[in-house]
Amino acid sequence: MHVVVLVKRVPDPEAPASLFRVDDAGQHFVPARSVPWLTSTYDESALEAALQLKDEHGASVTLLSLAADDVTEWLQETLATGADEAVLVQDAALASGDSFATAEVLAAALRKLGDVDLVLCGRQASDTDAGIVGPALAEHLGWPSVTVVRKVALQGDTLRVERAVEDGYEVLEMALPALLTVTSEQYPLRYATMPNIMAASMKEIPVWTAADLGLAAPGARIAQQRLYQPEARVACELVTADTPEEAAAALARALRARGLI
């Protein structure tokens, strides 16, 4: 069984908001140089789900990423968690498109890879928070898809998944090939082991361009008119006292004075 995991490299979404600013064009959210770049949060969960399928069913796991720059080093680090191969589509024009453009590029890459049984990706990217690429890609491929999957299991050729819904969860079964977008709770990504780090450093990562995929830059389906940071909040009133107990009492009085308790 061949599982492909879509991974995206993003600026750390947990970095303080003060380290980001909107560019002069009002279009891009630019992180300070000190902000580390890492794997999009939910893509890590997708990768862990894939690695568990490898542990349990001997699946082979390939990472697939689209980026404007050479992100081979990061891909190698991500490979070191135990995935088998990685492929990078490196093309500035293709990588600067919206979610629909990305889905078209990845569909072309998957067709070029061939022999894929299952595609896993995060439920939404930490930068765009769009949640569009996964299902849009499944539509291009003509495969069943399920979003916000919290558990994946394979029974023969049938995929059985738990999908989070508003008041609980659904259990769905479907034939392969299929695409799932994964949420985090049950899939914390494992650490890289020394043997896997060694193996990953020897792996060659093919780099494809638009020409390799036979693609021109796809048209835009989402136009951003403006990007801005929400207004900074007013200063916090700190309740100080000599002891925690006195501070707590003062806080209670402040809440009572505001009619909140």
């Binding site: 979610s99 629909f100 889905a103 439920r123 928070d129 769009a130 949640g131 569009i132 690429v133 996964g134 299902p135 849009a136 499944a138 539509e139 291009h140 898809s145 399920v146 979003t147 916000v148 999908r163 989070a164 819904v165 508003e166 659904e170 389906r221 989402i222 136009a223």
Partner: peptide, 21 residues
């Protein structure tokens, strides 16, 4: 849950754009 599932695929089918959330 259903909107997240449906909207992107519907957009591709219709050749339409989509803004989520």
């Amino acid at each position: 849950a259903s909107g997240k599932d449906l909207a992107p695929r519907l957009a591709v089918r219709l050749g339409a754009g989509l803004v989520t959330d």
